[in-house]
Design a binder for these strands. Sequence first.
DNA 1: GCTGCCGGGGT
DNA 2: ACCCCGGCAGC
Length: 446
Amino acid sequence: MNSEGLLNKSWAFGISGCSSAPRPVCNVGLRASDRKANCKIIATVDSSTIQSDPLSGRILCTLLLDNDGAVKEQGSEDIAFCATTLTTERKQTQPAVSNMVQTCEMEDRGGQERSCTRGGSAEVRCQHSAWSGLHARTSSHIPVPVHRAHREVMAAAALTSLCTTGPPRPEPPARESSDQSVPSTPSPPLSTDISKGFLLLSQGDDVTEESEITHFLFEDPIPRKRRNSMKVMFKCLWKNCETVLSSSSGIQRHVRTIHLGRNGDSEDSEGEEDFYYSEMEVNMDTLSEGLSCLTPTSPTMPTAPPLPTVISLRAELRYASPLSQSAPSALCHIRTDHAYQATAPLSSPTAPSMFGPNKVETNFSWQPPPTAQSTQIHLDNMMERRLQHTSGTKLHPTATPTPKPSSGNRKPRGEAKKCRKVYGMEKRELWCTACRWKKACQRFTD
DNA sequence: GCTGCCGGGGT
DNA sequence: ACCCCGGCAGC
């Protein structure tokens, strides 16, 4: 097997920390290939590649490959990890190794040799020690192509994941003292430090992918859930606007279109919208609980969801056709002030569905807990405001969308003929009740 | 002026 | 709750 084959087998076996180290140092300290009697030194890991290493220059361990194909590790007692990366140099000299197993177990036998062969497969066992608290950096003297580095990272990830399946091991005191910045909540410096190392390896990779790799590499089962449950949201800072979106582009577009009154795709804002939103961390567990309460298909949906953080769904409608002019009244025919109007249809055939294809965005807004009725009112107002905005009148940031103070909230006269017009005064008995009572016609709605 | 309908009052 | 109407505003 050539070196490429080794790569394909994810020969990278060096991983540290294992199950009891939530912040394993995964470093690449491989230097050279060498030969010994009956063994081949396939890698040496020294402390020169480790940042903040108090024993600078010291060889931490040497990885040997014996004739049986088993990997042996030899080194000092305080070996924290055995990490390796295939280098160009090694790629040329690495002998064929088969049945290499990507297993890393936590096992402290107290001896110098921590390797065994099981079923013809070699296992690299890592010993946990005080070294686990060390921060690692990527060895800068090892040129690694991006794609290959990526593969090696993934291989290391596989190893680590196997490590975490090992028997539980109590946290060593050394870690507690050396690394005090390990809260139960996510720790940005960790991901930053680690990811920095991998960024050197895979600068061309997408950040998200790199982040995923980092999480995959170093995640703890329980902390991962917390880590994933926190999500950065972007909150609009505009006065009286509580829109919260999950993406910066979305909030920028929101600010640009809603508040700045600019075209959503135009670039003339020159980043002005950046001043009108801020990031916020949101516990997605709480949010999802709230959402599940609001989900119509939720089997456990209560009639009045007791939300710790209440979400009101804002159906932001964007209409491009003149149909939108009449949409509000058609959409929101929930009126209970008069009994004769309660029988009116809840929606018009010409009205777009609230959750229909015209719905472009659904925003989450943190607001005081509304009742079901107030939620409807909120939707109503939101839609009306949006429709007023999209129907041609550009909103000034400080201007409240009040069309005409003098005209009050009187809705514009509809286009359709009413009962009076259709039947005439002679057949007043054919009018709908509302028309007879000089109220808004309920038969011929707009 | 016609029409739609809001607001208010009467029963 | 039901019914009626004055009055306003859009057309």
